[in-house]
Design a protein around this nucleic acid. Structure first.
Length: 265
DNA sequence: AGAACGGATCATGGTACGAT
DNA sequence: ATCGTACCATGATCCGTTCT
């Protein structure tokens, strides 16, 4: 609500260290970014603990993660090594991570405001949370594609690791990009997705439920609506056409989809 | 035979801004 | 005022191979 990364805080984050950690530099050398970029990430991560306020640490982490995302071609961490053929001249690929970081600190400082309420964030299994006293839940689960897998960790493992400095994570050494292990979710598999939706809707039956989903996913819209009707008297769905941009060549058939917003109350 | 995994992949169109 | 150029967002996929 009120704490930003001011001059002294940024100075602490950028301060040189003598005995700082080198995990990122050692692990991702030749895989992502330049050696200088990797050392910068180690330095800022090591300096995070010098900020006393958790809100400031969170802002710094958000700025650092955003910096890494912008500098990585396509924003995904499935590609590594020599990425020069992705270079289309854009500024994001030219800046160092440090230059990105300075900019992103300002970006995140600008989103701090006070609306008079207290807010909390949790990173947890949805089935482990208490559903009491929730007016409205917005659900954005992973989609099960029609015939493929949809694994976010394989695209964003570096950011997930960065958010905790890979503490408690096991790196899969045999993978080219040094992925961390994929966490299990029943929403990612045909076998278990329907049951998982049913359980989720049941848990939040006292709240307004808003579900984001796509025509690309399984189960289809009709089935989701009927699952939601088990617990909700009124179910309405909104639909919007959407085109993805990653496969613009002719063979990409799934780029044209409908996005759904399904509301139960 | 279908599911899951690991890794690689586009080009279109909007916007900002300087040049004319 | 208009034109041209550079920048850059998009990213719940695609494909070949391995596993069950």
């Amino acid at each position: 609500n009120k704490y930003r990364l001011d001059g002294p805080a940024v100075k602490k984050l950028l301060a040189p260290r003598n005995n700082g950690p080198h995990f990122i530099e050692k692990t991702f050398d030749g895989i992502f970014y330049t050696p200088d970029d990797l050392r910068f990430l180690d330095r800022v991560c090591g300096n995070l603990e010098t900020l006393e306020r958790p809100a400031q640490r969170a802002l710094a982490q958000a700025a650092l993660i955003r910096s890494c995302l912008k500098k990585q071609p396509r924003g995904v961490f499935t590609v590594s090594g020599d990425l020069s053929h992705y270079d289309d001249g854009r500024r994001d690929l030219r800046l160092t991570i440090e230059e990105h970081f300075i900019e992103q600190v300002e970006v995140f400082n600008c989103v701090v405001f006070d609306n008079g309420h207290r807010h909390t964030v949790k990173r947890a299994d949805v089935f482990s949370l208490k559903p009491n006293g929730v007016d409205l839940v917005y659900l954005d689960p992973p989609y099960v594609p029609r015939s493929d897998d949809n694994c976010y960790i394989k695209r964003y493992h570096f950011l997930e690791g960065l958010s905790c400095y890979w503490k408690g994570q096991r790196i899969m050494e045999e993978t080219r990009v040094k992925k961390i292990e994929k966490p299990y979710t029943p929403f990612s598999y045909r076998k278990s997705a329907i049951k998982a939706f049913d359980k989720l809707f049941q848990i939040y039956r006292e709240s307004i439920i808003v579900l984001s989903y796509s025509s690309n996913g399984f189960p289809d819209r009709e089935e989701l609506e009927s699952l939601l009707r088990r617990y909700k008297g009124s179910v309405t769905a909104f639909e919007k056409p959407h085109r993805y941009h990653f496969g613009t060549h002719g063979s990409v058939e799934r780029a044209e989809v409908s996005e759904y917003l399904i509301v139960g109350r």
